[in-house]
Computed example of a mutant assay.
Amino acid sequence: MASTAQPLRAAIIPVTPLQQNCTLLWCTKTMRGAFVDPGGDLPLLKSQMEKHDVTIEKILVTHGHFDHCGGAAQLADDLSVKIEGPHPEDMFLLEKLHEDGLRYDVPGRSFVPSRWLDQGDTVTVGEVEFAVHHTPGHTPGHVVFHNAESKLAIVGDVLFRGSIGRTDFPRGNHQELINSIVTRLWPMGDDTFFLPGHGDPSTFGQERQSNPFVADSVIA
Rank of each mutant, 00 (worst) to 15 (best):
T62Q: 14
T28R: 00
C27I: 00
L185M: 12
L93M: 11
V218Y: 12
E57P: 01
V214M: 07
E99Q: 15
S202E: 09
W26Y: 06
V182R: 11
V123A: 03
T62P: 00
F66M: 14
S114F: 06
V54Y: 08
G189W: 06
C69E: 08
R103P: 05
K51A: 15
A131L: 13
I56Q: 00
P86D: 13
V144F: 05
D191S: 12
H146E: 06
P14G: 10
N211D: 14
K151Q: 15
H142N: 14
G71V: 07
R32A: 00
G172M: 04
P212D: 14
K58I: 01
D77R: 11
A76V: 07
G40I: 05
C22T: 15
G33K: 00
A72N: 04
I154E: 02
P113E: 08
T135E: 10
T30S: 12
V61T: 10
N173C: 13
L177V: 06
E207C: 02
G108R: 04
H146I: 02
H63M: 05
A2H: 12
D105T: 12
E99M: 10
G165M: 05
A220F: 14
F145E: 06
G108H: 09
G40Y: 09
P7G: 14
C69Q: 09
E50Q: 15
T192P: 08
A73Y: 03
I56A: 00
W116V: 06
Q119V: 11
V214I: 15
A34D: 00
G199Y: 07
D168Q: 09
E84D: 10
Q48G: 05
P86F: 05
G40P: 03
T23G: 02
T28W: 00
K51G: 14
R184Y: 04
V155G: 05
W186Q: 09
E84T: 00
G33V: 00
T183R: 12
I154F: 03
I12F: 03
H98A: 15
G205I: 05
Q206P: 01
N211K: 08
L177P: 02
T30N: 04
A72R: 02
T62D: 07
L24A: 01
A72P: 02
F111W: 03
C22N: 13
G40L: 11
R166Q: 13
V15W: 04
V61R: 04
G33E: 01
V155H: 07
G205M: 08
D100R: 13
L94Q: 08
V218P: 07
V155M: 08
T30P: 01
L93E: 08
M49N: 08
D37T: 10
L152I: 11
M49E: 15
Y104Q: 11
V132R: 04
G40D: 11
V155K: 07
E127M: 09
K46W: 05
D100F: 09
D190W: 04
S80F: 07
A10K: 03
H68V: 02
F193S: 02
R109I: 11
Q206H: 13
F193T: 03
H65M: 10
L60E: 08
G64S: 10
W26V: 00
D191W: 04
A148C: 13
I59L: 12
G108C: 10
V54S: 09
E89M: 13
P212A: 13
